[in-house]
Write a protein that binds this DNA or RNA. Structure first.
Lengths: 229, 229
DNA sequence: CGTTGAATTGATTTAAGTCAATCGACGTGG
DNA sequence: CCACGTCGATTGACTTAAATCAATTCAACG
């Protein structure tokens, strides 16, 4: 399925600065990384499929993954998008039962793969590592619930506005902020629980709330207007 | 806010059989419970509110809590409902930042309250306990994501059917299964992300899929029909 | 038996999905 | 360098699911 690669300096550096490993003592980092493999995936290649038994979790090194669930009639719903530095699948480490979701790369991507069995052992005798996993899962849990709330409380333009707001805050503090969407609009639409057409309409509806846009570049000219729905 | 009560035998027994404590060695259970307080709440009493700093997590002893988020225009969306034996709020143990959600009792209820600070200390030197928390958070994370997927992929009748299916499976294996909804329909509607009217309509639409219902009692006469949407 | 809050039913509105056509950007090959 | 082809994004017309508003009905409780 996915090609196994060698870990280079860049990968190692990136991994050491992730929420998973940053702050752990060096020999623990060494222990974790010693059983890590690096894998590469083409566009839309599956890392795992719902229903299967889980055997690994991953950290994204480059590119993006899409975590999603497929319905009986073959429609798909995205559960989350993860980019460089982010872990996914770690929730299967302490969950009996098969995978509830599938994961596939959204484009060419590389990942660090961690054996669930081996990591479970480390968790059980290194509280530092257990806490790192707990931190990641706490964030993921809160994000997922935030998603439920967002879907249920806000309309498409509101959800898009909130998302752009988060990006704007992350990308600068000046009044007119410009940034690039981290991935394709169709992927963003999925993340926000929208059909691509709905995202398109929502974005153009936001023009009157100070959104200027050309291709994947977004400029936010009026943060306050964005905040007011 | 909530009244502090004494822990009785019944409470202690229930706690010892929860996912949190079952399987831990006795003196660890003792250590955890020694700093636990029992609180009672009236109907619709808040345990915590979004925006506040979190200082405790809880296990339900009796009754139900509703975890929810309120929007600017004061509409509310439920994130989850938790009943006897279930923990909630534990995700704040390893999350800096304020509460993203509020919790309130759905009726008269009692809870065991655990100090986040104290529990964090126990996690850090008792891997057994860390694993128990990890298990709970993994389940919660998977449930929350399941919710996102369910909302996005299925219509109201489908979501209700799936929920009844879960209850039916839990309550018996015979072909005609009868059981009582664990809480009010309005609460169930919230849990499923529906207005009460929509739940009502969905339930009556399911009559032709083998659902017989009187008040809070539900009878499932045809499991297969339920499975087929 | 009456009162109160929950549940149901009906009529209407609204948000967003779907289907279909067009546009646009980018990369390839002539 | 330009024409073409592909794929993503946009726009429009239409349909559909579910929210909302309003009026009863029902059920549980004293």
């Amino acid at each position: 399925v996915a090609k196994i690669l060698n870990m280079n300096h860049h990968d190692r550096l990136l991994l050491q600065n992730t929420e998973l490993l940053a702050g752990l003592n060096p020999q623990l980092v060494g222990r974790v990384l010693s059983s890590t493999t690096i894998v590469g995936a083409e566009t839309r290649e599956d890392l795992f499929r719902e229903g299967e038994k889980a055997d690994s979790f991953y950290v994204v090194l480059s590119g993006y993954v899409r975590l999603f669930r497929r319905s009986k009639d073959d429609r798909e719903a995205d559960i989350g998008i993860f980019g460089p530095g982010e872990a996914f699948g770690e929730c299967m480490m302490f969950h009996s039962g098969n995978l509830a979701f599938s994961a596939q790369s959204a484009g060419p991507a590389t990942f660090a793969r961690f054996s669930l069995d081996k990591m479970r052992l480390i968790v059980q005798d290194e509280p530092e590592f257990a806490v790192a996993i707990l931190r990641i899962m706490a964030r993921h849990l809160i994000d997922a619930r935030e998603n439920v709330a967002e879907d249920r409380l806000h309309t498409a333009p509101q959800r898009v506005a909130n998302y752009l707001l988060k990006l704007a805050l992350a990308n600068g503090v000046g009044q007119p902020v410009a940034f690039r969407l981290p991935f394709q609009k169709s992927l963003l639409a999925g993340k926000l629980g929208l059909a691509p057409e709905a995202l398109s309409r929502a974005l153009s509806a936001l023009k009157k709330a100070g959104i200027r846009m050309r291709g994947r570049m977004i400029e936010v000219t009026d943060i306050d207007a964005l905040k007011n729905v």
